[in-house]
Design a protein around this nucleic acid. Structure first.
Length: 922
RNA sequence: GGGCCUAUAGCUCAGUUGGUUAGAGCGCACGCCUGAUAAGCGUGAGGUCGAUAGUUCAAAUCUAUCUAGGCCCA
């Protein structure tokens, strides 16, 4: 007789091979067709809200692995919060304005650009951004991300644009916005400001000059040794044309400076550069008169070498000893660092250069000259004044215009700023930082330090693709006009027609009729053409999205982005929210690290170590990518490599096979009819349920703490150790050989059903596709949810917890390990192959003997051998459990493969054991 | 150059307030099974805890320096 067919072997059409790249899109279609996300939010409508507010990715290019990581992390949180019983409605967004899009559009236009109006360019920018929003949306959906994809937020939506105007309006009205000067990269050929991204660095020949600034302040009181001779501070620069704008000389506070007597006069310079400089000057005979740290000279005054003006000595930390003299020529209108120290010391941001790069007419000697041509004139004039000590030529890296390739200059221009101090923004922001939960905790220190030290926020840009700074200027008295009425009028216009109207319409039509200048009563106005920094756009997303959509909530429960956003979105959102609402827009901020390669190095095209999400999805599936996200501790940098992905794929298959085994053994189990009440379950099944409760506890807690790698490791361990190699292995005999409806089999199935449904739900936020696939295969009555994502996590059932039982089984597992070792020995000696070939004699100390006695009947199934006999050890000295392995007695039952003396007793089934005969009849 | 952060087996992670021989899973090696079968089971080998110096009776854990790497500034 073919006994195989009389067994209850696993049966399922849940495939072993996942073929995720093909199967996942089918689930996406299913979710979409059945409107699963819509059902989810409807179902959760009345629940407590947990709102993760999406930081908008930039609408340019395809998503990369870092974007995928970020969105998957968000999705795991959103799904796990829904399953934990919250309403976690997720509205994704995109950042659409800004230079990168404008760049791409300009590139594609080429020379045609100059023929187009601002509005035309903006229209093309909008089309370009729309295209990439659509591309990225599909890419995100393919990852299995749930959210309101049909109605995301875009910073270029008319409503959003109006919000930007209103929010910036609040700053305009509260007195924190001012206009000031700031140096920007400026291309004299294009007559335009350039952003950092529009600048390329190339080698350039520049003059290199050493200039002396005669000391005016008397040094004798401080340094008696310096009495008598004229003293000069020596500076070095490669941009002689900025000498006319010199207002200060910067020294490092802690470097040692020297006063050096070279004969008729005394030079001041840094100790570390003395020899180099003296050699350059050809001075062989010199004497150091004084030594002092830079900070002792702070506030001393020198005379400008060309003009009747002072140049003050200031301190700056960026002074280096790499080149020059350690005394840095400072022109606050012509350099970034110069500007910052200039602001700090209250110096004028002096920049007497016009749009064409020519000196303005108030500059003696050089008025009207192009700055680069003026280099030699300046040197000549310095030489005439006796201030030029040395002139050379040097080749160095210098900024050039990306378009014309011409060298560019730093030039101070009028810009708009939000003050950090005028309304106490800095102090309030610092206070608000302490009210937020930062995960990990050092995020707080990081943003705190930045807010503490940052300069005022320069919010203006001289570009086309963005939101205009909606202020007006009175044509007659030049006064700035921005009132509640004008701001709201413009906001309403934007709401209806978009921000393009600002560039499309005449100024008069952007103002309420009859608007008068409050200063002079004038009725003619011009409009500002600068646009806002895009960080302001995304920085008010809470206002445009959270406050505008009633299904959401302000402040957000959570912001979640890469750690670079401490300077980016977390930062700008904090400032706008604190400035207008007095507190942070988020309760918690979670940051993740950056994706790096297997060696921990950053990914770059040039290094050739880039892994694209698309590749992973096509090769292994989105679920493997999601599993990767969950497995790594994202607080640190996150590694990815082919090996890591291979390991993850292996790990995925182990989990998948666990699901498959469970499904295969539940094909004939109807939980509503066949479930065995808990007290009647076999003890080992109750052990399994106890372990399951522990897993549920650990996993739910890990989700709550956003520690997804704990989820991954816990589930992985549970599947591999507690289930597959222990519980399932033991269960097979009962599941396969007992009659299908027997109490023993139903008891096992009762536990397996609980395990399967819990395991499916616990992994659903991570393995969103696979969990759904399992769920669709799971039997269940009317009450079964349409999708696993519509369910909530299993609760811990206290009645399933039994610590005493667990402890007993821990002892059994220890003894089982001893038996396994003995079996392995016997296997090596070729005594047995299958463990069922063996019988085991256990030699036990008294305590163990008494304990195992009560499990005597079950032990053979627990050890998966044909029989177990228990023997107390003879000597009391013996404390160890010993297992002796012998060939099993009796014949092998062809049905259950156990050896038993009953085989052959039944004439109808001469090669089956008594237990199997019963099962066959039963 | 500055701020913040990271470094534990081939891979991913644990490692409480410093306290025996540093753990887990995967992978690997060897073996078993062929009734989860492109599966399953068993046994085993892998680590100077990035390096150095210190504090201590005792350091993966505390301190300093260095090295490698990441993010943000300059």
């Amino acid at each position: 007789m073919d006994y195989r067919s009389t067994l209850n072997l696993p049966k399922t059409d849940f495939p072993m091979r996942a073929n995720l790249s093909k199967r996942e899109p089918e689930f996406l279609k299913m979710w979409e067709a059945r409107g699963i996300y819509g059902k989810l939010i409807r179902q959760a409508k009345e629940r407590t809200k947990y709102i993760l507010h999406d930081g908008p990715p930039y609408a340019n290019g395809n998503i990369h692995i870092g974007t995928a990581l970020n969105k998957i992390l968000k999705d795991i949180i959103v799904k796990s919060k829904f399953m934990a019983g919250f309403n976690s409605h997720y509205v994704p967004g995109w950042d659409c304005h800004g230079l990168p899009v404008e760049h791409e559009v300009e590139k594609s236009l080429g020379k045609k650009k100059t023929e187009l109006s601002t509005v035309d360019i903006r229209k093309r920018c909008r089309d370009y951004a729309t295209k990439f929003v659509n591309i990225q949306r599909e890419e995100f959906k393919r990852l299995g991300i749930f959210g309101e994809w049909e109605n995301p937020y875009l910073t270029m939506n008319f409503g959003y644009q109006a919000t930007i105007v209103r929010e910036f309006g609040k700053f305009l009205l509260n007195g924190s916005v001012y206009k000031g000067k700031k140096p920007v990269h400026w291309c004299p050929t294009c007559k335009t400001a350039l952003a950092e991204a529009e600048v390329k660095y190339e080698d350039h020949r520049s003059p290199s000059i050493y200039v002396k600034f005669r000391m005016i302040s008397k040094l004798e009181n401080e340094f008696p040794a310096l009495k008598g001779k004229p003293i000069s501070v020596i500076i070095w620069t490669t941009t002689p044309w900025t000498i006319p704008a010199n207002l200060a000389i910067a020294l490092h506070p802690d470097f040692t400076y020297l006063a050096v007597d070279i004969g008729k006069e005394v030079y001041i310079l840094a100790e570390g550069l003395l020899e180099t400089v003296m050699e350059k000057f050809g001075v062989g005979n010199y004497k150091v008169l004084e030594k002092f740290p830079g900070k002792r000279l702070e506030g001393f005054k020198t005379r400008h070498p060309l003009y009747e003006r002072e140049s003050i000595i200031i301190l700056a930390p960026y002074v280096t000893l790499d080149a020059g003299t350690g005394c840095v020529h400072t022109a606050p209108g012509h350099g970034q660092e110069d500007y910052e120290t200039g602001v700090q010391y209250g110096l004028e941001i002096y920049s007497p250069v016009d749009d064409d790069g020519r000196f303005t007419k108030d500059v003696p000697f050089f008025a009207g000259q192009f700055v680069f041509d003026a280099n030699s004139a300046v040197s000549k004039k310095l030489a005439e004044a006796g201030a030029l000590l040395k002139e050379e030529v040097m080749v160095h890296s210098y900024p050039h215009c990306w378009r014309t390739n011409d060298p560019i200059i730093f030039r101070a221009t009028e810009q708009w700023f939000i003050s950090m101090e005028k309304t106490g923004l800095r102090g309030n922001a610092l206070k608000s930082i302490n009210e937020v939960t930062w995960i990990p905790p050092w995020g707080r220190d990081r943003i705190y330090g930045m807010i503490e030290n940052r300069p005022d926020w320069c919010v203006s840009r001289q570009r086309a693709w963005g939101i205009p700074i909606t202020v007006f200027y009175c044509s007659s008295c030049k006064q700035t006009l921005a009132t509640q009425e004008t701001i709201e009028y413009v906001a309403k216009l934007f709401e209806k027609r978009g921000a393009d109207v600002w560039f499309d319409e005449e100024t008069a039509r952007l103002l309420p009729e009859g608007t008068r200048c409050p200063g002079c009563g004038g009725s003619e106005f011009t409009k500002e053409t600068d646009i806002l920094d895009v960080w302001f756009d995304s920085g008010v997303s809470y206002a445009a999205v959270l406050e505008n959509r009633p299904e959401l909530q302000f402040p957000a429960s959570l912001y979640l982005e890469g750690s670079d956003q401490h300077r980016g979105w977390f930062h700008s959102s904090l400032l706008t929210s604190v400035g207008t609402r007095g507190h942070a827009p988020y309760c918690s901020v979670l940051t993740h690290g950056f994706v790096v390669d297997g060696e921990g190095k950053k990914m770059s095209k040039s290094a050739g170590n880039v892994i694209a999400p698309e590749e992973v999805i096509n090769k292994l599936g989105a679920d493997v990518l999601r599993l990767w996200v969950s497995a790594e501790d994202y607080k640190d940098d996150i590694k990815i490599s082919d090996e890591i992905l291979k390991r993850l794929a292996d790990s995925y298959f182990r989990i998948r096979n666990t699901y498959r085994f469970l499904l295969g053994n539940l094909y004939d189990f109807d939980p509503e009819k066949d479930r065995i009440p808990y007290p009647d379950l076999y003890e080992i099944d109750r052990w399994a349920l106890h372990r399951l409760q522990k897993l549920i506890f650990r996993v739910r807690e890990a989700y709550e703490r956003f520690e997804f790698h704990i989820v991954y490791h816990s589930v992985q361990n549970f599947c591999a150790v507690e289930m597959s190699s222990t519980y399932f292995d033991i269960l097979k005999d009962r599941l396969y050989t007992f009659s299908s409806h027997s109490r023993g089999r139903r008891s096992a199935q009762t536990a397996l059903y609980e395990i399967l449904s819990a395991l499916t739900q616990l992994m659903a936020p991570i393995l969103s596709f696979t969990a759904e696939e399992v769920w669709q295969h799971l039997s269940g009555g009317e009450g079964k949810a349409e999708s696993v994502h519509l369910t909530v996590f299993p609760e811990i059932k206290n009645e399933y917890l039994d610590e005493g039982l667990n402890e007993r089984w821990e002892r059994i597992w220890e003894i089982r390990a001893v038996v396994m070792k003995a079996l392995e020995e016997a296997r090596k000696e070729k005594k047995i192959g299958l463990s069922l070939d063996a019988q085991v004699h256990l030699h036990l100390p008294e305590k163990e003997y008494q304990f195992l006695k009560s499990y005597e009947k079950e032990l053979k199934s627990i050890f998966i051998v044909s029989s177990v006999t228990l023997r107390p050890v003879e000597s009391r000295e013996e404390k160890e459990v010993k297992a002796e392995v012998l060939r099993a007695d009796g014949e092998k039952c062809e049905r259950c493969w156990n050896y038993d003396v009953s085989v052959g007793k039944d004439p109808e089934h001469p090669i089956a054991c008594g237990r199997c005969v019963e099962a066959l009849q039963g």
